[in-house]
Design a protein around this nucleic acid. Structure first.
Lengths: 147, 147
DNA sequence: CACAACTAAGTTGTGCACAACTGAATTGCC
DNA sequence: GGCAATTCAGTTGTGCACAACTTAGTTGTG
C-alpha cells in the first residue's frame, strides 16, 4: 500500500465499507420480521448465550462504547425484549437480561443464519478464510498507535 | 455457512463491521489534521480527480443515496471546500466543484495514503488479495434479491 | 399540446458510532 | 479513616447511513 492511488475501487477501506454495508442490507432484510436491527440482533445473541450480562461485558464483546450501547439497550427495553436492573453488589453496574418476550424471540431467530446463508450463497471455506483475514487486519489496525 | 454458530468472533459480518470500524479509526486519526471525516475525504478524492461532478455521480461512485450525500456536501460547503451550483442545462441537477481552499487541501492530502500505510504496516500483496475478496463478496451480497 | 412517468436533489425520522463529558460508586493507598 | 484515582453507566453533540417522502424539473406518449 505504498502507491498513491485513490480511485475508490482500489481502496481497501472503501471495499471494507461497501462490503459491510452490503452485508448490513442483507441482515436488515432478514431481521425485519423480528423487528431487530443488526446491532440489536448481535446483542440479543450475546444475551441468549449468556442469560444475563452487565452492560460492560456486552460492550466488550461487541467492541462498542457506552455511548452506542446505552441507547441501543434502552430501545431493546422499550421493545420489551430485555430488562435492565442496577446490580445490588455494585451499584455502578447494570445487569441486562432477556424478558420472556426476549427469550421467545430466540425461537424465531434460529432461522436467521440459514436465511443469511441462503440469501448470500456463500461457501463455508471462503467465509472462514475471509473472516480470518479480516480478524488479522482488525488486530493490526487496533494495535496501530494513533496520535 | 450452513452451521448455526452465533459466537460473535465467528461471524463474518461482525468481522467486517469490526475491521471497517478499526480502519475508520485509523483514517479518523490521520484525517484530523485536514478537518475531514473519512466519507468527506472520499468525496474530496472524487472531486480532485474529476474537477466537478453532479451530486448524482458522486453518490453513484460512493454507492450512497442522497439522504447521506446531501448533508455531507452541505457540510463540505459550510467548511468552504466545495461549491454547489444548480446546473443551467438541467435544473434538477446540482454540480459540485472544489473551491480554491478545496484544491489547496489536496496538497496536504497527498500524504494521507502514505500515513495510512505507515500506521497499519500492511503489505501490498495482502491488501490486494483482501480487497478482491471483499469486492467479490460485495457483488454477491448486492445481487442477493431481498424480499 | 397535455398529462403521466420518471428523474434529481433534498427533507424527515430512526438508528448506529464515537468523542468528550458528567455523576455516582468503588477501590487503592497512605 | 480519608482522599485520590479508577470504574461504570449514561448524556450530549456531531456525523454517517438508510427508508420513506416531497418538490421541482424533464421526458415520453397519446
Amino acid at each position: 500500500m505504498t502507491t498513491e492511488t485513490y480511485r475508490l475501487d482500489e481502496m481497501i477501506c472503501f471495499a471494507l465499507h461497501s462490503a459491510s454495508r452490503a452485508f448490513d442490507a442483507v441482515y436488515r432484510s432478514v431481521l425485519k420480521d423480528l423487528g431487530l436491527t443488526y446491532p440489536q440482533y448481535l446483542v440479543m445473541l450475546v444475551l441468549w448465550e449468556h442469560g444475563e450480562l452487565p452492560v460492560k461485558r456486552i460492550a466488550e464483546q461487541m467492541r462498542l462504547d457506552t455511548g452506542t450501547i446505552s441507547p441501543l439497550l434502552k430501545r431493546l427495553e422499550a421493545a420489551g425484549l430485555v430488562r435492565r436492573d442496577r446490580s445490588a453488589e455494585d451499584e455502578r453496574s447494570v445487569t441486562v437480561r432477556p424478558t420472556e418476550a426476549g427469550l421467545d424471540l430466540r425461537e424465531r431467530a434460529v432461522a436467521v443464519p440459514h436465511r443469511i446463508a441462503e440469501a448470500t450463497g456463500l461457501e463455508l471455506a471462503d467465509v472462514t478464510e475471509l473472516r480470518e483475514r479480516l480478524q488479522r487486519l482488525t488486530a493490526i489496525l487496533s494495535a496501530a498507535d494513533l496520535p
